[in-house]
């Protein structure tokens, strides 16, 4: 599904990612863990195509195609979704308007007709039920005045509406209390499927108790330092990132 080869990324003239190799198969859940400043968010923004994240070397293959030169909206309609660490507030634009614009952009790309208002509302009702999202949250402006938990639930709602082939979850646990975390994790778990891959980016092991990954990678100093199964996360929880900081300094 996603194959990253020798990825070097520069932001504002500073090289942040220094040769990442990562392969994610269909239906797999990968977790990337790492200390602050290791390049975790840079990786997620680069996959989603944010301006200013310049790929100087290497490639990102999505469904076999190099997407490095694609605009963010092209990547999105092709099936890449980034759940933001800090979802953006957009006053004056209703959440439903936003969801409908996004869904219809994706549908048009797939050669499907736009959903009409009735079809859209019916579809949305189904999706919001499990996430405990009130009607009021749909009518309000996108993320405006939402609590941290509401914002993250709104990200998961968008993911469930857009049905991406690859979802990148950037620090989805940050700012959530344990109850909110459970709701969000349940939402993500429900979206796991054999044809949907996920890449979860997190600083803390806590999230992995609720969303259990198939593989865990440690990112430090702009490189993947170690890869393993979920037991690697337990080890990090015990020992912290100190040894990787040392490896980084040595490198």
């Amino acid at each position: 599904m996603l194959e990253i080869k020798n990825l070097h990324v520069t932001v504002d003239g500073t090289e942040i990612l220094k040769g990442i190799d990562l392969s994610i198969g269909s239906g797999e859940m990968h977790a990337i863990m790492g200390p602050n400043g290791s390049g975790k968010s840079t990786l997620s923004y680069t996959i989603a195509g944010r301006d200013g994240y310049d790929v100087t070397e290497g490639e990102i293959l999505f469904k076999g195609e190099n997407i490095v030169d694609m605009k963010p909206e092209e990547r999105a309609v092709n099936g890449i979704f980034l759940a933001f660490q800090y979802p953006v507030e957009i006053p004056g634009v209703a959440n439903t308007t936003f969801l409908k614009e996004a869904l219809n952009a994706v549908r048009r790309h797939r050669g499907e007709d736009d959903l009409d208002a009735m079809q859209f509302v019916r579809m949305l009702r189904e999706k919001v039920k499990d996430l405990g999202i009130a009607d009021d949250m749909l009518k309000r402006a996108v993320n405006a005045g939402f609590s941290g938990g509401e914002k993250k639930r709104n990200e998961v709602l968008q993911m469930s509406v857009l049905e991406p082939a690859l979802a990148v979850l950037d620090e989805t646990d940050s700012g959530l209390d344990i109850d909110a975390l459970k709701i969000v994790a349940d939402g993500v778990n429900r979206l796991r499927s054999p044809d949907r891959s996920m890449l979860m980016i997190t600083h803390y092991q806590r999230l992995l108790d609720y969303i259990v990954p198939d593989y865990v990678h440690v990112l430090a100093g702009g490189r993947i330092q170690r890869s393993g199964g979920k037991e690697l996360a337990m080890e990090l929880e015990k020992n912290g990132y100190a040894e990787f900081a040392a490896e980084d300094a040595a490198a």
């Binding site: 989603a48 605009k71 909206e73 999105a76 933001f84 936003f98 614009e101 996004a102 968008q158």
Partner: peptide, 13 residues
């Protein structure tokens, strides 16, 4: 950031 957020949901620039 808001522009990127909308684009990342498939909305053309």
């Amino acid at each position: 950031t808001a522009l990127f957020y909308l684009q990342s949901r498939g909305i053309p620039e």
